[in-house]
Nucleic acid binder design. Structure first.
Length: 258
DNA sequence: CAGCTTGTTAGGTT
DNA sequence: TAACCTAACAAGCT
């Protein structure tokens, strides 16, 4: 689930729920989501501080406190919710931050594929993000196109490689390729200049319209609205959609349009 | 029980 | 080096 638009939504949850508020209590209900930090150290580092700001890079979310920074990654099933402190925790609420008076920010994750890190200083933040390419919403056309030229793998794999451009996942990559009319199995370094142009333009357009929704919206006019239907057809030309496997992920595309 | 899932990464091979 | 594949991680669902 969580790709760039989802994580941007979680950033907004963090801001509206917790920004500027004092962290009164940190409750780790499942330490299995903590990486490189104990529940005890997390509490000790955060309780009494404030959440001062929230930044997103790709699929990473950084919660600033003026001291250590909490880095969150949501894997496939993670999310951030704001609740009242008396609301019963959901079964997969793993870490609860009670902030200000009467609010609780909750890291919820069914599968625990990623989780929370505590970066003690800016160097530690940089280490966590060291392998991330430029954010998909911030990268300029020139850098994006140059990155594609430098890669020989299939364009689908390249788009979802976080070290090339950060924030695109399986659904977004398929959606962008379909809109740009590029075959997912095409090799990145064999694309025409025009292909690269369209990919950049459609990446921007797709992200801009997905971000306010907080996810890749399964609209009828989008490819994403059809990938889970029993016998999906292309919403643009009506051809049956193809389903194949690239880079170990299910890839949905239209042989007619792409 | 087998197979599937929107993410990442280590390890092995090409 | 780069690219590619698989397994592994965890916890569901069909």
């Amino acid at each position: 689930m969580p790709e760039l638009p989802d994580v941007e939504g979680f950033r907004e949850v963090l801001v509206s729920c917790a920004q500027g508020r004092v962290i009164r209590h940190v409750e780790v209900r499942d330490a299995g989501v903590l990486h490189g930090v104990s529940a005890r150290r997390l509490r000790e580092a955060l309780e009494g501080r404030r959440f001062t700001g929230a930044e997103r890079h790709g699929k990473w979310l950084l919660a600033r406190t003026g001291g250590p920074t909490v880095a969150l990654h949501f894997g496939m099933t993670g999310l951030l919710v704001c609740a009242g402190p008396d609301e019963e925790a959901a079964p997969h609420d793993r870490v609860l931050f009670t902030v200000g008076t009467g609010r609780q920010l909750r890291y919820r994750d069914q599968r625990k594929l990623q989780g929370l890190w505590l970066a003690e200083d800016e160097t530690a933040v940089e280490r966590l993000l060291a392998r991330q390419g430029p954010d998909a919403l911030a990268v300029d056309r020139e850098r994006f196109e140059a990155a594609l030229c430098a890669r020989r793998g299939t364009i689908k794999t390249v788009l979802t490689d976080q070290s090339v451009v950060a924030g695109l996942g399986n659904l977004l990559a398929d959606e962008i390729l379909w809109r740009a009319r590029v075959r997912p199995a095409a090799h990145a370094n064999e694309l025409t200049e025009d292909d690269r142009r369209r990919l950049y333009t459609q990446m921007r357009r797709t992200l801009r319209s997905a971000v306010p929704t907080g996810r890749v919206p399964p609209r009828d006019s989008w490819l994403t609205g059809h990938r889970d239907t029993p016998s999906p057809h292309c919403p643009r030309c009506g051809e049956p959609l193809r389903r194949s496997r690239l880079g170990g992920r299910t890839t949905v595309w239209c042989a007619q349009c792409q």
